[in-house]
């Protein structure tokens, strides 16, 4: 008798990512009772699988846009769509990596990464993914360490693994490398690119580092001073892997700095 062998292959085929549509979004805060306009009629389309960076002067409202995309706040006016559906609140398919690792100090590295699946109630099925995500960010062997035992770069890798384990369709990066030392930052920039290329999710990155935006993204959106408006966008069609010394990157950098009114520093 021949036993029929049924094999279920793990289907972790790269997904194409989500498309984002920001439609006429304005947002304001209340500061001492006075309304403070942060975003003004922002329109933005991000295609599925695209890597887009948002660049702008400090405090211009870039991070606010990310918070709206993440669903942490509703916009004052306008609408945001993900794959044609209105964004109504946070969802693990649109997970955020913040500037600070925001790890839970009472959870080990493993349990920090596992929190997403635990919240979804499918931790048992996703145990393998947790290990995989930790391996992806190079932290195998640190499962039982507590956040206070990690360096800044390692903690940020844990935060990245914690996001990746949810199989995000849109990865929202809010200056995730902003507080790292420059060597770690360079290493992690290259890792981000290869993660994005392998997993195929959409990336929306906020940064104030012109070089980082150009090195990573296919398209760089430049915001004006507050209230943030879309100023220009620069399409960077250079193929990956890119090289920091590429003279074409330097040219683009010059152009972006000019847009930010900083070309006197060139």
């Amino acid at each position: 008798m021949v036993a029929a062998a049924i094999r279920v292959e793990a289907t972790t085929a790269p997904t194409a990512g989500s498309a984002l549509h920001v439609q006429d979004v304005s947002h304001q805060f209340k500061l001492h009772g006075e309304p403070l306009a942060v975003l003004e009629r922002v329109n933005l389309q991000v295609a599925a699988g695209e890597f887009v960076a948002v660049l702008g002067p400090s405090g211009c409202g870039k991070s606010t846009l990310l918070r709206l995309v993440a669903g942490l706040e509703p916009p004052s006016a306008g609408r945001l769509f993900i794959d044609g559906e209105l964004i109504a609140g946070p969802h693990p398919s649109r997970v955020v990596v913040f500037q600070d690792p925001t790890l839970y100090p009472w959870r080990t590295v493993w349990r920090n990464v596992a929190l997403g699946p635990e919240a979804q109630g499918n931790l048992q099925a996703k145990r393998g993914r947790v290990a995989e995500a930790l391996k992806l960010v190079g932290l195998t062997g640190f499962e039982n360490a507590y956040p206070h035992q990690l360096s800044g770069g390692m903690a940020q890798r844990v935060a990245l693994a914690r996001a990746l384990v949810n199989d995000p369709q849109l990865l929202i990066l809010d200056e995730p490398l902003g507080k790292l030392d420059s060597l770690t930052r360079i290493a992690m920039q290259s890792e981000l690119v290869s993660l994005w290329q392998n997993a195929g999710f959409t990336v929306l990155l906020v940064t104030h580092d012109v070089e980082e935006a150009l090195f990573l993204a296919q398209r760089v959106i430049v915001f004006s001073d507050r209230p943030a408006r879309l100023k220009t966008e620069i399409v960077n069609a250079l193929p990956y892997p890119r090289h920091r010394g590429d003279p074409r990157l330097a040219e683009l950098r010059h152009a972006v700095l000019a847009q930010l009114g900083l070309d006197a520093t060139w």
Binding site: G71, P92, V95, F98, T102, Y104, A119, N166, I172
Partner: peptide, 12 residues
């Protein structure tokens, strides 16, 4: 920020 991170991870 820990609460917000939890919200984006899908915690109820």
């Amino acid at each position: 920020t820990l609460v917000e991170a939890g919200r984006t991870l899908g915690l109820s």
